[in-house]
Design a protein around this nucleic acid. Structure first.
Lengths: 119, 119
DNA sequence: GCTTATACCTCGAAGTTAGAGGCATGACAA
DNA sequence: TTGTCATGCCTCTAACTTCGAGGTATAAGC
């Protein structure tokens, strides 16, 4: 889990962020999350089941979400909800993400004004 | 190179983006890039040499940058410049990055208005 | 009976990243 | 002179994330 790096752990991890965010809005099950990400990003982002399910299992193992089996119309589902710990995790991930976005923006906007005193 | 995915290839790839961007501003050498990223992101992002050098080699192998050996004050350096192909690559990566940022923002701002018609 | 949509899952390949380490020079101090 | 620091290059490996392919099963519609 997580990383031992100094960097925000967020140069990947986007799927986890989106999943946590969606679940914080309302309880959802895996298959639904797959569709929701595609729809709510207007197809710009798409994570398959092979990506989403393992993340859900990891998040549950880490105590960030809890799963509850349901049967609706002959369909078995595992409905997930964020825990208190998961809500904190989401907050952390969101600020980490925004920090990365800000840092990248700095470089892209040529904030190279701060030049290293080399050469 | 690149990926065979449908997703923008950009949930990682931030180091490459920053390196290309910095090099498009002016010619730089590896060690300098390491410092420049740390400085221009105000220490928020930091990629070590073990990360930067392999990327430089890959970018050069792909024809996105060219390296030129120099010796300054007994120091050996390899100064890199972006090629025309590298400039296009940078443009692509920048728009991919902005697309991802936009998509994530959508989800974070609860643009879940577009709900999947499931359940 | 076939296909499609729903719904869960695992496996394995492929890719990125980062730390640890190695090499060599020049400068500066003890 | 001997150390240490900053410079400058490099590789290797471990760890991680992601994703396609594949497997199972039910219900609905043709």
């Amino acid at each position: 889990m997580s990383n031992r790096r100094s960097n925000p752990d967020f140069l990947n991890g986007v799927p986890e962020l989106l999943i946590l965010q969606l679940l914080s809005t309302r309880a959802m099950y895996g298959y639904q999350i797959v569709q929701a990400i595609r729809l709510s990003t207007k197809g710009r982002l798409e994570f398959g089941e092979g990506c989403v399910y393992p993340i859900l299992h990891r998040l549950e193992a880490d105590g960030y979400i809890t799963g509850q089996r349901e049967t609706v119309a002959g369909r078995n589902r595992v409905v997930y909800r964020v825990t208190a710990s998961g809500a904190r995790r989401l907050q952390d991930q969101v600020s980490a993400w925004q920090m990365v976005v800000g840092a990248v923006e700095n470089v892209l906007q040529g904030a190279t004004h701060v030049e290293p005193g080399l050469a």
